[in-house]
Structure formats: C-alpha cells, structure tokens
Nucleic acid binder design. Sequence first.
DNA 1: GTTGACTACGTACCTAGGTACGTAGTTTAC
DNA 2: GTAAACTACGTACCTAGGTACGTAGTCAAC
Lengths: 126, 126
Amino acid sequence: MKISQFAKQAGVSVETVRYYHREGLLAVPENSGSYRQYTNVHINKIAFIQKAKLAGFTLDEIKQLERLDASRDKDEIRRISEDKMQLLETKIAELVMAQTFLSELVLACKKSDNEPCPILTELRDT
Amino acid sequence: MKISQFAKQAGVSVETVRYYHREGLLAVPENSGSYRQYTNVHINKIAFIQKAKLAGFTLDEIKQLERLDASRDKDEIRRISEDKMQLLETKIAELVMAQTFLSELVLACKKSDNEPCPILTELRDT
DNA sequence: GTTGACTACGTACCTAGGTACGTAGTTTAC
DNA sequence: GTAAACTACGTACCTAGGTACGTAGTCAAC
C-alpha cells in the first residue's frame, strides 16, 4: 500500500511516518514504480513503536531496543527497562506530591469564606 | 543586590532570571547606578514561582494566577487549580499503566531462561 | 492534455523552559 | 590606568516528537 493508506492503518500521520524514516526508526520500503510500497511488516513495526512509547520509552530508546533485540542482548534490555521503571517511579512520585499539595490548597480555598484565596497565599508563604 | 548574587540566593541561574523577565513573570527591578537592584521582593516572587511549578503549573499559568490574584478572582483560581489536578490525575494514571506494563515484562524476562527476551516479543505481539 | 490527488524531499516551524554566546558597557582590584 | 569580573541586551541554540509548507514529480480520471 502507499504511504497515506499505510499511515491511516497505522494510526499516525503521513508526516510522522516520514519522521520515523528520518530518525531511522522505520525502514524505508522498496519502491514499486515511483512510490514506496508499505506492507504488514511496516504496520507491525509501527505498532511495536506505539506500544513501546506507551511503556514509557523514548524514540531513541526504542531504536536502541531494536539493536539489542537484533544482538539478542537480553541483560541490557532488562537493564534499560529497569532504569525506565525507576524513572517512571520518580516521575509518578513527583506528580503525586504536586497533586497532594494542590488538593490541600483547593480544599482550603473551598473552606475559606471572604478571605483571599488560600491557594495563592499558601504558595507565597509556605 | 545584583543579579548574580540574587540568582544564587534564589537558586536559579542568571539566564533564568533574565528569561523570567523576558516572559513577564518577574518584574525588572529599578536600577541603582548602572545595574539592577534585586531585593527580597524578587526573592519571594521567585520562590512563589518555584512552588507553583512544583504544584504542576506551567509558567504561563503562573502568570495567569498572578493576574487573578491581583483581581481577587478566587473562583477562577480554584477552577484553574482543579483543572490542573485533573490533568495531574490523568498523567499519573498513564505513568502507572506504563509502569505496570513494564514491570510485568521485566518479571517475565527474569523468569525466562534461554528464550528470547519476553520484553521485546511481548511488545511486538500483545 | 489538463486538472486534481497523491508522493517524495528538504527545510522551517512549533512548544516549554530554559541555556549559550557575542558584543558592549561598567565596576572593582591592583 | 588597565585587566578581570560583572552586567545588559539581543539572538541563536537545545530537547522531543512531531507538524507544516513549498517544490517538483507522478498518476488516474475526465
């Protein structure tokens, strides 16, 4: 299939497909005539990229995972995955703290009557 | 005090101070002689910005909060804060899903013996 | 045989929050 | 009185993951 049908099936934009080509994430398919012919191989590859993104990997890391897969370097794949989990852990903790902080402020704001909003005074003074 | 001492006390870089000036987040202090004189007012303002960042607000939103504070618009401040909490909620849920997914994969990888690493095969097939 | 849709390619632009650099003026130390 | 350090200002650059646009080629339909 040609690029626009492929992009539609893969659930990304044509520009994104080209971007992945440029970044070396997605092999450029052979031409059939003047245009590139995309196949299920490419669909699967895009699906893999999307899933790895959902798992928190960056595009660079996804490229790296592919290389390690090719070289069957299981230990390194696991190391990278564990690092990523640690990073997710940290980010989650940060966001939870922000959320807790903010929810306390909003609660205080609801309780306050005609005083100035505690959200800003707390941010200023705590 | 002059900008470099101020930046040090505020815990940001000189470039960041200037950036905040450019973005209209931090008022440019009066000159004393040829150079700007920073005071505790500016220190407090930077501290406020840092805390609001920790609470998950973007610099644009922090500017907006200041304006609403000046106009004493408590309802709008609370609305923005609740929106932000919702956004934090969503982001946290996404990260937790990524983390859960990844931890299952790493666990499967540890259990596997001489098979190919399940992390990549799962990403490919699930 | 020309219009419209599609493709390929290259380059610029976008957000967010800065960072870095070059130039020119000023102040401080010796 | 001059060299080092500091300041002000403007502009360019950075990451990440794309998006948008301009040009030129190609293909199918009418």
